[in-house]
Amino acid sequence: MMTTIWSGLSTGALYAIAGMLFTIPLVRCGIINFAQAFFVVLGGYVMAALISDGWSTVPILLVLLAVGGVLGGLQELLTIRPNKGRHETALVTTLGMGVAIQGFILAVWGSNPKTVLFFGGDDPISLFGGRLAPADLWMIGIAIAAAIGFQFAVARTRWGLLGRAAMIDQTAATLRGINIPRLRTLAFAFGAAAACALALVAAPKTGITYGNGLGLAVYGFAALSIGGFGSFSGTLLGGLFIGLVQAFLTRYLSVDWATISVFAILCFVLVVKPGGLLGARQLRAV
């Protein structure tokens, strides 16, 4: 029972972090980067390759941050900036980036899954009468820390204020001297770097398979839609909720019912409360 709860919470934490990764560019410039989830998968492959070359954890982390940062920045410069904030085009190009990453992985590493060990060890630990892996505990901790940290940063810092200004009215923000394109490039670079680095914790848990990106994207997106568009704490709650529902239904019914149920819950929330449970209403038109 408690083991199921832990499993649900850690999976849910992964979904929540994926949802927050979507939220980072969203609260900076109102664009959702579909490729985020695929960056996590790419990070996993890069990490596996470096581990087999005998690298240790800290240099790997730095490489992952650099790879993500450069790719995310380039993505914004090459595919978002030229189309001047037209959202439906951004939808296609960010999806295209995700597909291209998936294609790159297939071409370089092939379709065989890989596994890596967690840097914090893989021996299960017992906590409150349930068993979980150290990576699971890390995942839950990171999700909570990220939610609190980002919520604070967006609401209370100058950095967050600039982003909110840019999202609400780009023209007005530009007139007040905010460099919107630079803000956007940095948001994409930062988001992708965080996504790649997340692989350090996510890859040992999920395994490394090129097909993981779509599932992570969809569940992360579901977490943020159910929890609340643009709200980090809402995304955390949404993710944990989905994770728990999935874990319990998988345990007591079947994995198929679990997937369909999460889909049904998502549709229900979108119809009944389109802004999500904790979402800001003005974000509806995103």
């Binding site: 939808l91 198929d256 997937t259 369909i260 889909f263 979108l270 509806r284």
Partner: peptide, 26 residues
């Protein structure tokens, strides 16, 4: 169409992807 279209183009895409992902489960 109903849940997605009430919301935004992002939600339409999300619901569509989820549906495709759920085909094997269905």
């Amino acid at each position: 169409g109903l849940p997605g279209l009430r919301f935004s183009s992002w939600a339409v895409a999300l619901v569509a992807f989820f549906l495709v992902l759920a085909i094997p489960n269905l």
